[in-house]
Each structure stands twice: as structure tokens, then as C-alpha cells.
């Protein structure tokens, strides 16, 4: 910022000089050009100690055969961990399973969330709206650990309430979390329950970003609803929706706590996704080298997601500035 100078005799200048003399520390700070860097300093320290150093550590360990519980010293094996991952069919199965989980849970939450978002669009005059929205939005702020825990109770084959209803309605009981064919679908259903409110929130935000004038014009012209959505609502709201879908996708990729508590990846490995698999390789099998290599790969995927997210975000901002 440019320093503003005054003719020496103005009162403003006098008080300015006086203020500067009073606070030598502040003055020293004002004079130094390193001020912006000093401000960033603490964050940089945190960033280096908790991100950069661990990242290098991770990179290093990924070149070793390193089992934490074995007495054998770590052995340098170059790219073998990565080659193993490339060759191992389990890893491809794992990535495929994670991907289909992501697609289904994000797709489900997005569809349901958009529908309900539209439904809640005119909720401005709803009596007790704040309480209703609180109840609606609750699932997404709950600890995934608690959600995974209490769904075990709800879905229990013997005393779970879900089975009480299925028995009343279709006369059959299900082992939702223990059945090989059901566990994956059940995990998705619980995740959709947890995250549909988020997509409702994003849909409401997207709808709120549509200019009122355009909507009124469409109303006056009696444009059919599908056209209204396509030509008026989507062009204005699509960025927020896309950001929402991207955030959901990233979060679905990260999912670890929920399956860990609910199914522990089982039965078999039908609900084991990347996060849980990493946890098991690292902290149950203590294969640090192998886990590090897998972690590096997930890191790259995460960085790709972050770039796409920021691309959409900056695209939206430039567009907003042009208008």
C-alpha cells in the first residue's frame, strides 16, 4: 500500500506523527517491508511442520519395505511398493469399489437433494422454519462415528427397528450389514441419508442465486417449468450446484469412519473403500511402506480433485465479475 504523505503543517499529519512516536513497536512494523511475510509466518510454520515434512517422510517411506511390528530394519526397495500396487488386482478392485460407491452415493444424494431443494424453495413462510431446517440439516453435522454406531443398532437383524418395519411391510427380515449382497447398498443408503441435506442446502443456495427479475419475467411470460429450469435457473445456479457435487465427491472419496464403524469393511471386503483400506494396511497390518505408497496415490487423486474444484470456483468468480 502506498504511504500517504502530508504537508507537515496539517493537523492530520501532526496526529499521524504523534501516533507513530507513541508506539515504537507498531512503528517498526509499519516501516518494515517484511510485514506481509511476518503475518504469514505462523501459518507457514504450521504448514511446513505438519504438511511438508510429513509429505517428504511419506514419500521416503513409500520406497521402503517397512513393517512397524517386525524387528527387521526397513529395506530400500525403490518403486516396488508402487509396482505391487499397480499389479495387485485387489487394489484395482478397491479403487473400482470406491469409485462405484462415490458415483452411487453422490448421484443419490444429488438427485434426492435437488428434488427436495426445489420442494423447500418456497419454504419462506413455513411456521417454525428454523426448527424444521435444523431437523432437516442435522444428519450432515453428526460425527460419522456416531452415525455408524447408531445405525448398527437401527439395522440390527434381531432388535433393529428397520427390520421391525420390513417384517411388517414385506414379511421378511434382513441382515442389512452382515449380508454380502446388502451391505454395500446399505452403506450407500446411510451415506445418502447423511448427505442429502447438504445437497438440499446447495440447491437452495443455487436457487437463491437466480435473479428475482428473471424469475418474475418467466412467470409473466408463462414459460413452462422445464424451460424455466433449463433457461433461467440452471445458467444462474449451476456453479453452486457443481461446487456442491464436487465437494460431495471429494468427501465420498474420503469416507473412512462410517464404514469402519458400521461394517468394518465387511462382510468380506464389500464395503472397504480407499480410506479404510489405507487404515488397515497402515494401522492393522503395520505395513508402513505399502500404506505410504497407497497414500501417495490417494494424495495425487485429492490434488486432482482440488484443482478441478478451484477451476470451477475461479471460473464462477470471473464470470461474476464480467456481469
Amino acid at each position: 500500500m502506498a504511504q500517504t504523505t502530508f504537508p507537515a503543517e496539517t493537523p492530520a499529519a501532526a496526529s499521524y506523527q504523534q501516533a507513530r512516536r507513541r508506539l515504537p513497536m507498531a512503528r517498526a512494523l509499519d516501516e518494515t517491508r517484511a510485514f506481509p511475510v511476518i503475518l504469514i509466518g505462523p501459518v507457514l510454520v504450521f504448514f511446513i511442520v505438519w504438511n511438508v515434512v510429513p509429505l517428504l517422510w511419506l514419500l521416503g517411506v513409500s520406497f521402503y519395505q517397512y513393517k512397524l511390528t517386525s524387528a527387521r530394519p526397513a529395506e530400500y526397495i525403490q518403486f516396488e511398493n508402487f509396482i505391487d500396487i499397480w499389479r495387485a488386482s485387489e487394489v484395482w478392485g478397491l479403487l473400482g469399489r470406491t469409485l462405484s460407491f462415490m458415483l452411487l452415493t453422490v448421484g443419490g444424494a444429488t438427485l434426492l437433494g435437488m428434488l427436495l431443494g426445489f420442494l423447500f424453495w418456497g419454504s419462506g413462510k413455513l411456521p417454525g422454519r428454523r426448527l424444521a431446517l435444523t431437523l432437516l440439516f442435522t444428519p450432515m453435522v453428526l460425527p460419522p462415528v456416531a452415525v455408524g454406531t447408531f445405525y448398527r443398532l437401527i439395522l440390527d437383524p434381531i432388535f433393529g427397528i428397520a427390520n421391525f418395519f420390513t417384517e411388517k411391510l414385506i414379511g421378511q427380515r434382513f441382515d442389512f450389514l452382515g449380508n454380502k449382497d446388502l451391505a454395500f447398498a446399505t452403506t450407500i443408503a446411510v451415506d445418502v441419508w447423511m448427505w442429502t441435506p447438504f445437497m438440499i442446502l446447495m440447491t437452495l443456495a443455487a436457487l437463491a442465486s437466480v435473479p428475482k427479475a428473471e424469475l418474475e419475467a418467466a412467470e409473466i411470460d408463462q414459460i413452462p417449468w422445464l424451460k424455466r429450469i433449463w433457461y433461467v435457473i440452471l445458467p444462474n445456479g449451476k456453479f453452486i450446484l457443481m461446487l456442491g457435487i464436487l465437494l460431495r465427491t471429494i468427501d465420498a472419496f474420503k469416507t473412512t469412519d462410517l464404514p469402519y464403524l458400521m461394517t468394518n469393511g465387511g462382510p468380506g471386503n464389500t464395503t472397504e473403500f480407499v480410506g479404510l483400506s489405507l487404515y488397515r494396511t497402515g494401522f492393522e497390518a503395520f505395513q508402513m511402506g505399502e500404506a505410504s505408497a497407497l497414500a501417495i496415490i490417494t494424495l495425487l487423486i485429492a490434488i486432482a480433485f482440488a484443482s478441478i474444484y478451484l477451476y470451477v470456483l475461479s471460473y464462477r468468480e470471473t464470470r461474476a465479475q464480467l456481469q
Binding site: W50, N51, P54, L55, W57, L58, V61, I250, F253, K254, T255, T256, D257, V274, G275, L276, L278, Y279, G282, F283, M288, A291, S292, L294, A295, T298, L299, A302, I303, F305, A306, S307, Y309
Partner: peptide
């Protein structure tokens, strides 16, 4: 992007 990585991948190097 550090907040977009699965938690076990973050905690692994920190643990070491």
C-alpha cells in the same frame, strides 16, 4: 487440497 485427502493418508506420516 490437504483437506481433501482421506484421513488415514494424512495421519500416516504424522504418526511416523
Amino acid at each position: 487440497s490437504t483437506r481433501m485427502v482421506p484421513a488415514p493418508a494424512v495421519v500416516l506420516p504424522i504418526f511416523l
